[in-house]
Amino acid sequence: MRQVTIRLVIDVVSVLETETVTGHLFMFDNNRLYGSLDQNTSHLATAVAPGDQIIWSVVPIECEAYAALSAVDVPADLVEVTKNTYPGTNVSYWTGVVKKPVGDLSYGLTFELGTKTKTISTDRTSRLIDGNGVQRSGAETSEIAA
């Protein structure tokens, strides 16, 4: 079992201006050595295996802009997700426990943004992919990055 952290870096001002996350959401995880692909894009493919715990957290580019993840849309029979809040704050994050192999599973994210709380969702290009559980060597990692 691994803990896989997915950071969702979002340009809140640009999303509110354009009403789309396309080009304004940058996702990365800590699992590249185990097979994750497309780091720093909105279509991150996170490698996971049954038993892994996933943590999704939002980081707004603008420190004063409100951004929260309000939903992770993934089949409950494959990944059990739960919304959590850091103790003593109203800052939330989501966790998921992978129950079965996911294959190549696209999923959606819904954000609440700005002071008037606009809700906007992704186009489901983010994916969970089956990880092989074996750390890649430096040569394999270089090929992936190229």
Rank of each mutant, 00 (worst) to 15 (best):
T89N: 08
S142E: 14
D104F: 14
N132C: 12
K83I: 04
T115M: 15
G88H: 13
D77K: 09
D130K: 00
T82A: 03
S126N: 05
E19P: 08
L8Q: 09
T18Q: 15
R7E: 13
S92I: 08
L105Y: 01
L128Y: 00
K116Y: 14
P101H: 12
V74T: 10
K100Y: 01
V81F: 01
D123G: 07
T117D: 15
Y107L: 07
V81W: 02
E19Y: 10
L113C: 05
L128R: 08
T115P: 15
T20Q: 07
V81M: 01
N90W: 06
A49P: 05
T41D: 05
C63S: 12
Y34T: 04
I61S: 12
L109V: 01
I129A: 11
S126C: 08
V59L: 14
Q39A: 13
H43L: 13
G103C: 04
V102S: 08
G23V: 07
T95E: 07
V48Y: 00
A146N: 12
A45H: 08
V9M: 13
V102Q: 08
D73P: 01
R127L: 08
S57E: 15
V74A: 02
K83S: 06
E19D: 15
L33N: 10
D52K: 05
G114S: 11
G23D: 00
D73R: 11
G114P: 04
I6W: 03
P60M: 01
D104R: 14
L109R: 07
G131A: 07
F26Y: 12
A67T: 07
E140I: 09
T110M: 03
T85C: 09
V72E: 01
S126I: 05
V74N: 02
V102H: 00
S36M: 05
W94E: 00
